[in-house]
């Protein structure tokens, strides 16, 4: 008892340190600050980046990046290596604090996104280099995606109070559902670290999906996956959107796979957004072609400044 009371109060302290300054309601403070705010009748922006800049020492990773992601769309962010794609995702998930700009989830604006609150805000992500919990089974990896819903203290979990049991049962049912959806039944009890790479990627996707996030961030989901694996994974990503209505933002440097998958594509180069539009438009965009092929174009000096 003593223990749980002590740790809970400490946790509350930790929550308070971020809460007052960072999270604001749009109506309270900056009604006009949202660029390209909601168009009446149009789909609501689930994620909006406003004027994000980020640098590490003298190295600029992101420069004045704006991005609007509508509900239910699959949005790819592509660009050559070092274009700032992963930095962008890390800003959205709160691992980096941008030098300027704001991240909006629906009506909530953040200077730095509180990472610990991400799941509660309905945002989930995967990592470029797998970030599974290697000591847990595939099923437990998926189950832990619902960790933020377990609000019973350790005493109640220890004695198995009705609330603890109900939450556990609900979470297990949700995990089973996603395991079935992504066809992971056969490996559900295997230790995650022992699974082949492609399956680990799928377990990670399942872990992110189990909480039914409004927004799902995928960091290079296709990296290191075989060609047939890529197509299978792309189907799962699309299936996740169709089934759960999840808005998906994915980072990828392989331009081919995202053309068929995404509704919109944003292109980053040297930390700047150089194009944003439907795949057909991106395919013919001269700036994108230059960025990828590295052609010395007349405009390039301007772009690089």
């Amino acid at each position: 008892m003593l223990l749980s009371a002590l740790t809970t109060s400490l946790d509350v302290l930790a929550l308070e340190t971020w809460a007052p300054g960072t999270a604001r309601q749009v109506l309270d403070t900056e009604p006009a600050a949202a660029p390209g705010a909601q168009v009446s009748g149009g789909p609501r922006a689930v994620l909006r980046l406003a004027n994000i800049s980020l640098s590490f020492g003298g190295l600029t990773a992101l420069r004045d990046v704006d991005l609007d992601v509508a509900e239910g769309e699959i949005r790819a962010v592509i660009g050559p290596n070092g274009a700032g794609k992963s930095s962008l995702l890390n800003v959205v998930s709160g691992l980096y604090r941008p030098d300027q700009g704001e991240v909006w989830f629906g009506d909530h604006a953040f200077r730095q996104v509180p990472t610990a609150q991400l799941a509660r805000l309905g945002v989930a992500r995967t990592f470029q280099n797998l970030a599974l919990f290697n000591g847990l089974s595939a099923f437990d990896n998926v189950l832990i995606g619902l960790a933020h819903r377990v609000h019973t203290g350790f005493i109640r979990q220890l004695v198995g109070s009705p609330a603890a049991r109900r939450i556990e049962a609900e979470n297990r049912a949700a995990a089973e559902e996603v395991i079935g959806f992504l066809h992971l039944q056969e490996v559900r009890d295997r230790i995650a670290g022992s699974l082949p790479y492609g399956l680990q990627k799928r377990v990670e996707l399942a872990r992110a999906l189990v909480a039914r996030p409004k927004l799902l961030l995928l960091d290079e989901p296709f990296a290191g996956v075989t060609l047939s694996g890529k197509q299978e994974l792309a189907q799962h990503v699309r299936g996740a959107r169709d089934r759960y209505g999840t808005t998906i933002v994915l980072i990828e440097h392989d331009i081919g796979i995202v053309m068929g998958l995404s509704d919109h594509i944003a292109v980053l180069d040297y930390g700047r957004k150089i194009a944003d539009g439907p795949p057909a438009e991106i395919k013919t965009n001269q700036a994108v072609i230059d960025a990828y092929l590295g052609v010395a174009h007349e405009d390039e000096t301007e772009l690089a400044i």
């Binding site: 691992l95 799941a119 832990i144």
Partner: peptide, 13 residues
Amino acid sequence: RDHEVAAKVIGVP
């Protein structure tokens, strides 16, 4: 133990 950042993102306190 296995991945602190991923645990944080998921909402493990």
